[in-house]
Design a protein around this nucleic acid. Structure first.
Lengths: 92, 92
DNA sequence: TTGACATGCAAGTGAGCACTTGCCTATACA
DNA sequence: TGTATAGGCAAGTGCTCACTTGCATGTCAA
């Protein structure tokens, strides 16, 4: 999971899925290019999605010839559990 | 910072510093070998500490010929901010 | 069935990264 | 001053990883 977060393109994919959940592969490719300025090919994005899926950060729902991707941030919780961050006086 | 977390040895260093803060380089080498079964040389650990330092996860305090390392988990907060994790019904 | 669209599979390539190796600097102690 | 200890610097090596390339599979509409 930590290795999955190590790549900037994969983090952009997570951002994109957070902004609009359930995107297909082509949809992600388009929006990554448009909004993040990333010139990633379809295959590259597909491989990134595989990594994110293995990390449990993205789940997949197949529907006909489409494959929709959903964000699952729950694996990130173990980071906060493993290395707790002290409060920094923000009580608002 | 994400790349710094991507390596298992570096994560073990963070664990070790959390268990006992302010360790020197040799101290970390010894304890990594003893407690984590990692056969890392001094140079390897030193390079890992450089990466962790650049990521802001480890701060350094020099004292004579020793160099003590301290854990700083605050950079990890941006992960929780960027991809919030929904509560999972634990109200305790 | 045929053609267009969405995705999958797999080998190959280049760059980055973890690690080693060898030597050097600096501090403490006799 | 000499020696041992703690750490630093830098070139080299092997492996991993991101990405490409080319073709194959599967789904939908006409």
């Amino acid at each position: 999971m930590f290795k999955a977060l190590a790549d900037a393109t994969r983090r952009a994919i997570l951002d994109e899925l957070q902004d609009r959940d359930g995107q297909s592969l082509f949809e992600l490719c388009t929006r990554l290019t448009m909004r993040h300025g990333l010139g990633s090919t379809r295959q590259a994005v597909s491989q990134h999605l595989e990594v994110l899926e293995e990390a449990g950060l993205v789940t997949v729902r197949r529907e006909g010839r489409y494959k929709f991707h959903h964000l699952d941030t729950r694996p990130l919780r173990q980071i906060a559990v493993r290395w707790p961050v002290p409060d920094e006086g923000e009580s608002s």
